[in-house]
């Protein structure tokens, strides 16, 4: 294959990937009357931010973005803390039944969310927690997958490091915090990225558990927006654009790391 042909194909591929995003931005700044025009205008003469204004009038969009941001951050931090602690126990603290318990953790990993949503909804209703932040967060306090990933990382740390700390009189908590955690930082970063992305994009569980507009997350808010403005695509696209920007900024900074960890772990 010639160099020119190869390059042309690569650029064509990039255009296919970028164009829907570009079209979303263009649509979002198109005035109401021109959105459904035929033929469509790829370069609107009088771009306007009206659609963004209507978006903010239609729903507390900043609050929704904020919800997604803090729920994402909270669930990521919780999963990192609970996951790393369990990982330490499974890799470093021998106790009877440890293998069985680890197998139980792995079992929960195999059960898909679809199996859990109905009883989880009922459980939340039993405790009067439907439509609360807690319910939104509950399934992502601990991640069996995180425990698994981080356990591999802890197991790879040579035991000599712990032993040196023991000689210095350190207990398990201190070994965990000052020896293990710094050494498994790459695994923590990988898991943090995926934990945050999973929470930020999660749709099924919020759809089931949330009723009130003030507890909505971005995917819910967007779906609702689409229901409300069925034909006003400039408003819907404005919402989509606003929701992509924060994760895009994160991506620009963490891009290399994200791609490297996908290639290694096969996650997304």
């Amino acid at each position: 294959m010639g160099k020119v042909v190869r390059y042309a194909l690569v650029v064509l591929g990039a255009l296919v990937m970028l164009f829907p995003f570009a079209w979303a931005v263009i649509t979002s700044v198109t005035p109401d009357g021109a959105v459904l025009a035929t033929p469509p205008d790829l370069t609107p003469d009088d771009p306007t931010l009206d659609a963004y204004g209507r978006l903010l009038e239609a729903m507390p969009f900043w609050r929704i973005v904020l919800n997604s941001a803090w729920i994402g951050a909270a669930s990521t931090i919780l999963q990192l803390v609970t996951g790393a602690m369990a990982a330490y126990a499974f890799a470093r603290l021998p106790f009877p039944g440890r293998g069985v318990l680890f197998a139980v953790y792995l079992t929960t990993l195999m059960v898909p969310m679809q199996v859990l949503v109905v009883p989880l909804f009922i459980e939340m209703r039993m405790f009067n927690l439907v439509d609360t932040y807690f319910a939104l967060l509950a399934p992502s306090i601990a991640s069996a997958f995180g425990v698994f990933l981080l356990r591999q990382a802890v197991a790879q740390v040579p035991k000599e490091f712990d032993e040196a700390a023991v000689l210095d009189g350190a207990g398990h908590l201190r070994i965990f915090v000052s020896v293990i955690l710094p050494l498994i930082r790459p695994a923590l970063a990988t898991f943090a990225i995926f934990g945050f992305m999973a929470s930020w994009n999660s749709y099924l569980w919020p759809l089931i558990i949330i009723r009130s507009p003030e507890f909505r997350t971005i995917p819910l808010g967007l779906a609702e927006l689409h229901g409300q403005f069925t034909t006003e695509w400039n408003v819907v696209m404005a919402g989509s654009v606003v929701s992509v920007v924060p994760i895009l900024i994160l991506y620009v900074f963490a891009q290399r790391h994200v791609i490297a960890s996908v290639a290694q772990s096969g996650l997304k």
């Binding site: 990039a14 995003f21 992305m197 994009n201 995917p219």
Partner: peptide
């Protein structure tokens, strides 16, 4: 280019669905 191809992967399903529904 690799980063560009990966862009849709980090975008939420809801956004992707809405963009394509419009296209």
């Amino acid at each position: 280019f690799r980063a560009i191809y990966f862009l849709p992967v980090i975008t939420s399903w809801v956004v992707v669905a809405l963009m394509w529904k419009w296209l």
